[in-house]
Simulated scan of single mutants.
Amino acid sequence: MRDSYGISPDEKHYARMIDLLCRCGEFTEAKDLIESMPFEPGAPIWEALLAGCKTHGNLGLGIQAAERLLELVPQHDGTYVLLSNLYANAGYWDDVAKVRKLMRDRGVRKEPGCSWIDVENMVHFFLVDDTKHPEVQAAYKYLEQLGLEMRKLGYVPDTNYALHDMESEHKEYAISTHSEKLAVAFGLMKLPPGHTIRVFKNLRICGDCHNAFKFTSRVVGREIIVRDGKRFHHFRDGECSCGDYW
């Protein structure tokens, strides 16, 4: 960048590089890069590190990154969510409760996940565990039947994304009610055969939903496009255009 283009890397460039390293689990190299930066690391750096720690279950380093983030941006809900998820994946439910209490005490609210789809020029919205949409019960039944076909192909629900201390069967139900699954199911029910399903979500798609949609695209033989809070995911024939870089 410096030699060829005369550009000095700023914090955004470092954050992208640290994100890449952490996604690969290269935490030693990521830490070395942070320490070599010509300026003090800000929130984007620590958030990239925390996200990578959550993905790979690096609890110790993740807590350090979260502590720095809470000092820099104490009102950012994403930090609390990532830290809570990190504890939940490790089975530290008491710590999960402490993080959620800290959010309440500080008046920080998590943005609720919401997904929507346009069917016949009408936008239909779904929330997690939705009960308000007039046809949501039909969507739940459709997902049950679809799940049976997906399991025949090897799909196994990833209950690590059920971030509450509950029995295994309850965890499976919890992740089956995610808003993006309901929106996709509604689209499959309502749109003509062969029609591409296009769903939007305000937050990042969860890992189980991402995996489930790969299996769904194989079962129904249709293309599914999900635009989440980070990027487009184009599911077709059991694969995603992001190469699982979600």
Rank of each mutant, 00 (worst) to 15 (best):
W246D: 03
K101G: 05
G107Q: 15
I117V: 02
H164M: 12
A43M: 04
M37D: 05
R104A: 07
K132A: 10
C206G: 00
A66H: 10
N89Q: 15
S4C: 14
V96Q: 01
E111F: 09
F27R: 11
H195T: 07
E111P: 09
D32K: 15
L72K: 13
C24I: 06
L50I: 02
A43N: 02
L188I: 05
G243P: 10
G207R: 04
D3H: 05
L49K: 00
R16V: 05
F200G: 06
K31I: 07
I224D: 00
Y87K: 06
F125K: 11
W93L: 13
L86S: 08
L127F: 08
P192C: 13
M122R: 15
V123P: 07
I175M: 08
V73E: 15
C114D: 02
D105E: 15
I18P: 02
V136C: 11
D158S: 10
A51R: 01
A185L: 04
L148I: 13
L72S: 09
L146Q: 00
G221K: 14
V226H: 05
R104P: 05
R227C: 07
I45N: 09
A162F: 04
Y155G: 04
S4D: 14
E167H: 12
V219N: 00
Q145E: 00
I63Q: 13
I224C: 03
S84P: 03
V96E: 00
V123T: 12
I175T: 09
D129E: 13
F200M: 10
P41D: 09
H195F: 06
H56N: 06
L21N: 03
S241D: 10
K214M: 15
T131K: 15
Q75W: 04
A88N: 12
L191A: 07
L153T: 09
K190N: 10
Q75F: 08
V136H: 11
Q145C: 01
H170G: 09
N58T: 06
